[in-house]
Simulated assay, not measured.
Amino acid sequence: MKLIINNLTKSFSKKEVLNQASFTFDQGFVYALLGRNGAGKTTLFKLINESLDKDSGEVLLSENGKTEPISFKDIFFMVSEPELPKFLTGREFISFFIEANRENIKDLGTIDDYLKLVDLEVDDSNRLIQDYSTGMKNKLQMIMFLILKPKVILMDEPLTSLDVLVQVQMKKIIREIHKDHIIIFSTHILQLAKDICDKIVLIHDKKLTPVDGLLKDDPNFEDTIVSLLASDAEASEIKRIEENLGESHE
């Protein structure tokens, strides 16, 4: 199974974010998507899951000899600060999520099974989500993609604001499931990229560029990545546009 990004182009007004960006992501690997703040990482994810319209280009899924435009149901987009219904308990939310997605779910376990997988205590699952920390909300997001088993998992800086214990738990789950998925992990924390990911792709100068796999184990890894990204002079302006766009959708 492959996720194919083919000549993807996107501009906001006169500011071009991606220009004929192309790359193929393969099943069984966790990819780090690295770029400066504002380089277009979140924009790329929104184009993949069709919450933003492309100017041109294609996002395709190739599987079992067939290549066709990717379907929304094949994607799970995990964000760093999820907005979940505060008036439900965690358990009620998962139950609602299962019912709403029943036709897309295979091999469904019990809610308690999923709670154990992410180390969410039963008592915590019966609390209102309005009292949850960011880490607990992200555990609910992980339960969501563990239930759906999507072909493609997009993770937009999901570990940035979490405590060390939750980070370790999430890393463990990602490594346990990665063989069955295409996982793209956006982060600006280089140590996380080294710890979790198998391959590294830069989003830089409006393109997607792979990094030599051997570089991840090089003592000069961080310095090399920084030097590769240092010339992205437009990053802060693109970041401002992305933030404004996010506010307009709230």
Rank of each mutant, 00 (worst) to 15 (best):
S13T: 03
S71M: 14
F25C: 09
L33N: 01
L34Y: 06
R127V: 03
Q27T: 12
G65M: 12
L245R: 12
V166Y: 07
I105T: 04
I203W: 04
R91G: 00
M136A: 04
F87C: 03
M170G: 02
D123R: 15
T110P: 11
D205I: 02
G40A: 01
T9S: 15
S80Y: 02
K116M: 13
Q191Y: 14
D113L: 02
D123E: 15
D74S: 14
E176R: 15
C197D: 04
M155D: 09
F87H: 14
N64S: 12
D205V: 02
E243P: 00
T187Q: 13
N64F: 07
L47S: 00
D223I: 13
K14E: 15
K207G: 01
E81K: 03
L84T: 04
M78I: 00
D119F: 12
N37Q: 12
D198C: 02
E68M: 12
K199G: 02
Y31D: 07
D112T: 10
Q130H: 13
S186L: 03
L44D: 04
M1E: 10
N19P: 02
T89E: 05
R102N: 10
N19R: 05
L47R: 06
F45A: 00
L245F: 15
F23W: 14
D163M: 14
D124V: 15
K41W: 08
H181T: 07
G109A: 09
M1L: 08
D212I: 01
G90I: 06
L190Q: 11
F97N: 06
D131A: 08
L190N: 05
D180G: 07
D218V: 11
R91H: 14
I225Q: 13
Q130L: 05
L245Q: 11
D112W: 11
S125Y: 12
H188K: 03
N49E: 14
S13I: 09
M155V: 05
L120Y: 09
K116P: 05
I70F: 11
Q167S: 07
K10P: 07
D113S: 08
T110Y: 05
V118Q: 05
L245G: 00
K171M: 14
F221S: 03
L190I: 01
M1D: 06
K66V: 13
F145N: 03
F185T: 05
N7P: 05
K46S: 09
I200E: 04
L162M: 10
I182G: 07
L88K: 08
S71D: 10
G213W: 13
S80L: 00
V79T: 01
A233E: 14
N101A: 00
S133Y: 14
K73I: 09
D55I: 01
